[in-house]
Design a binder for these strands. Structure first.
Lengths: 316, 316
DNA sequence: GTTATCGACGATCATATGATCACGATGCGC
DNA sequence: GCGCATCGTGATCATATGATCGTCGATAAC
């Protein structure tokens, strides 16, 4: 029998043969050897055909889940901004976005935190929610918490209740004070210096990203006024991380407000091995995008519509 | 670190994790071990998750080809009628259906015929087309041809041209004669007896399936009349194979016409290891269905709409 | 409280897969 | 016609996968 002739004869029907092989493999669950026997092909050839089928897009694997689309966005985000990791949660009508982001962030950290590591935390509603969900894990893994800024005591106390409280180190000050001189004085305090230098040694930093919008938590909590925000906006601010406002490119602005902050600066933040940001919502699109472009963050946890919007802006 | 706690915590997010695993596996091309490292799972667990994902329908493999839908029909046909094999060619506007069936049949036979085997052939346009396409393979593989009935010499001669002609054994008679006595006399001829007994030893039989319709080749070629067909139909005939008409259940009818045929009967045909039928078209739906249900054929090669129609009739 | 049952887990091992290599056929340029 | 490059092929081997088994822990029944 002349093999060459046989193979030649199949050529115009390559697609059929390919489809048939793929069908047997993926739907019938046959092994490549079994398919080879049935169709008079060598096992290796079947393997190569499947390979070709996959590369040519003939074989398509669909993941039948609301998460399916998100992974593509994650890959895109990572690629565009050089992130270590991106997590995108699927769009959903029910449920508060911040809660779901907090949930996702806590999931991420649960999988990442190793025993006895140190987590530095920023400021904001999402960060708070994440810490609440993490509290049990933090005890289990004996994680140390340290604050990146002042003004976190209110909510971090709840998280740190119980046995693990000895591992929580807070900057004992407000986030913002009314004068630069006071801020300087506080930053010079021994205890504050200690906590801040400890924060620099954290393995991870968990931060929120704030929009320059009237709904910002900074305004709601009285740390800043609407008129201040208006000024920030005029100066090109698109968002803030731990109270520091930055422009479209993610570069921090030179604002008097920054001088009144008690907390780490961007340089110190970047020195932490992995900066994880959890934020989402239409108002925050520009803020997140700028933070990512400027390399301010290593890991981004956001929601699907926000991810979509961010990516779209950078396609154009 | 307490592993159990970690795993527990992922529970409500099983779908996410499953999707993520599937994504990495199928889209990113990571190995199960790599996925395990990334997501802090054991390799074996990743394997099991993928398994579950497939079983639960979370992971769906789509074969992006016009042939894709046909394999489902093939599987259904095989299952419903206990066929050894079914081949369904995709619906297509261009091209003659018979030609495409002949092409598919010849493809099938090319892959199946081994050196020096014997193929018995029936009667009809599709069979003729198949043999024409096969002629080169027949020479290459040194295949013997033998006819199942009379009346095939006209077209089989062309196929058997050249060196391999010594391996072609035809029943030297018409398909049908005008009287029972003549048929008996022919069937008693030494040469006819020889060829017919040779046909019984064939490895494969290739046959067409005829509809009881005015367009039938039997009528067109003058072997039967429209009025005869009308009578057959009244007696419950739905189709014929090698000139033998059968009813809805595939049982041969008791017709005077059969007594005037020169060729094998159903019993002899069934004794051939694999009876391959190639037929399609709306008129032949009932004929094919009855042949399949009655176990008259082992392999069916048909087209997509026909397969669909056959299956639909048996669903109800 | 104790025991039985069940399910999840990872270790181990056989099998399936695909990466690499070397060969032979085919087509092309010299 | 004669190398030469290229492609497709099967052989071989390292790796990836999943089937099987025993263990452990949780739960439920007693």
């Amino acid at each position: 029998m002349n093999e060459a002739y046989d193979e030649l004869a199949f050529e115009p029907h390559e697609e059929e043969l390919l489809s048939r092989v793929a069908w047997h493999y993926y739907h019938d669950g046959l092994t490549q050897s079994e398919i080879g026997e049935r169709l008079n092909l060598s096992r290796i050839k079947v393997s190569r055909m499947l390979d070709r089928g996959r590369k040519m897009g003939l074989i398509h694997v669909h993941i039948n889940s609301s998460y399916g689309g998100c992974f593509a966005l994650e890959a895109r985000l990572q690629e565009l901004y050089g992130l270590d990791e991106a997590r995108v949660i699927p769009a959903q009508e029910t449920g508060n976005v911040n809660d779901r982001l907090a949930e996702a962030a806590s999931q991420y950290l649960m999988g990442r935190l190793k025993d006895q590591e140190m987590l530095a935390v920023g400021w904001g509603a999402t960060v708070m929610g994440t810490l609440q969900r993490l509290s049990r894990t933090l005890s289990y893994k004996d994680i140390s918490l340290v604050s990146l800024t002042g003004g976190v005591s209110a909510y971090i106390e709840g998280v740190a209740s119980g046995r693990s409280s000895q591992n929580v180190h807070l900057i004992p000050a407000p986030l913002v004070v009314s004068q630069e001189s006071i801020a300087e004085a506080i930053r010079a305090e021994r205890h504050v210096v200690e906590v801040m230098s400890m924060a620099r040694t954290a393995n991870y930093a968990l931060v929120g990203i704030g929009a320059v919008a009237d709904e910002a938590t900074l305004i709601a909590s009285g740390y800043a006024s609407r008129s201040q925000f208006e000024i920030f906006r005029r100066q090109g601010a698109v968002g803030d991380i731990i109270g520091i406002f930055y422009d479209q490119t993610g570069e921090p602005l030179d604002l008097p407000f920054h001088k009144m902050l008690v907390g780490l600066d961007f340089e110190a933040l970047s020195a932490i091995p992995q900066v994880i940001a959890a934020a989402g919502g239409p108002k925050k699109v520009d803020a997140i995008r700028a933070a990512a472009r400027g390399g301010r963050i290593d890991v981004l946890i956001t929601d699907e519509p926000t991810a979509q919007a961010i990516i779209e802006k950078d396609q154009a």
